[in-house]
Design a binder for these strands. Sequence first.
DNA 1: GTGAAATGTTACAGATATGTGACCAGGGCG
DNA 2: CGCCCTGGTCACATATCTGTAACATTTCAC
Lengths: 232, 232
Amino acid sequence: MTNAGKRVLIVDDEAPIREMIAVALEMAGYECLEAENVQDAHSLVVDQRPDMILLDWMLPGTSGIEFARRLKREEATAELPIIMLTAKGEEENKVQGLESGADDYIPKPFSPRELVARLKAVLRRATPPGVEETIEVNGLILDPVCHRVMAHDKAVDVGPTEYRLLQFFMTHQERAYSRSQLLDQVWGGNVYVEERTVDVHIRRLRKALGQSHEQLIQTVRGTGYRFSTKAS
Amino acid sequence: MTNAGKRVLIVDDEAPIREMIAVALEMAGYECLEAENVQDAHSLVVDQRPDMILLDWMLPGTSGIEFARRLKREEATAELPIIMLTAKGEEENKVQGLESGADDYIPKPFSPRELVARLKAVLRRATPPGVEETIEVNGLILDPVCHRVMAHDKAVDVGPTEYRLLQFFMTHQERAYSRSQLLDQVWGGNVYVEERTVDVHIRRLRKALGQSHEQLIQTVRGTGYRFSTKAS
DNA sequence: GTGAAATGTTACAGATATGTGACCAGGGCG
DNA sequence: CGCCCTGGTCACATATCTGTAACATTTCAC
């Protein structure tokens, strides 16, 4: 079960092109989502959580490159593989495209076969090193590969959101984050959620971690929360 | 909070709608400015410098979209976040609205709650985090990033106000400040609080710092207080 | 030394912020 | 279609903070 069932978001303003790509990918066993602009794309990213993005360079409104940068900037979506699509003759943009965080770059026109091949390649090395490393703090282990949390060798049952929250905290220890920042980083920006919702998830996470580790997540009164091994 | 006191300019030609929005925002702690046409709006932008704009799509005279474009074109106002409001059934305008530089788009009718939520989200993204360096004096460390105070590697537990007070002192060492100045600087102007309240917080801060560092905060009799490494 | 003024300390009640459990809506799934 | 899981929100319980007043102590001028 490597690529089967992977969800790919296609972002292009021209419907026929989207359609063509979608057909090609579906034949290859992928599931496709489509968006014709950055706003729709972002919504889809937030609530569908695709496994990768095919992103057209030229888009109405925010350009593709802007969008890519933005995705990379936010913790919640930074690891999302992106392939940039670009019209012919824009070779010079390649560097800029890759700089913006895209994982590959395909000039139009391309054959469906080539597209699928490169997409596979990108997905294969999708999880870049660093992200897949397990993090351990005081007997609390987060294993991104198994997508699993262990406390003193006992599995901890956390929901998806709590998992992301914990992952964010463990990769950003010591620093205090406001509810706002957490919403941006863990939920992904442009999601309209009450700040207090963060409290609830913090609570759920603490509960899941149990007595042994809940004190790792500290309340910074008047500010937000912090993950720290040092006592407060 | 970060959002407290932010000023929002509401541009809509219908007074009742402006009023409704204003009430909702004021309850949420924002300050509201109102304009019923683009000319007034522009004046207000220029001399009131609001933190963001709620802009109705349909306006007498220059359309909202024109106005948005113009603001984005001008250097001084290019960064001003804009949320477009539009009557229902104008979904097709969404793209155009966002193209013109709006940061979000809310179709009428909308609930006050949604409005506030999206406004928060936009404002949140627009406010870049400031640079924050840790300050160290005689083994006393204030770390704004972790939002934490350490005295000789031991965490010091201070309340929000004491934290701000200490931060102010550590960034303004050696100089004496009157109670009234401290109220302005630490509490923020236009708050009606007894001057003696400062004494109480000074006391709390000293207590929190403990014997090892309390002498850093010196009383300047007849004047106020001073943070100094030199003995008095 | 004495008394008035300034500052230190403490206690407390109201205001705020956070913790917590429950509920409800939407989506996936059999 | 109905069940279960998840996530977001609300309402209420706690915990913590804050400003004040009241009283204690220090300082200083005389």
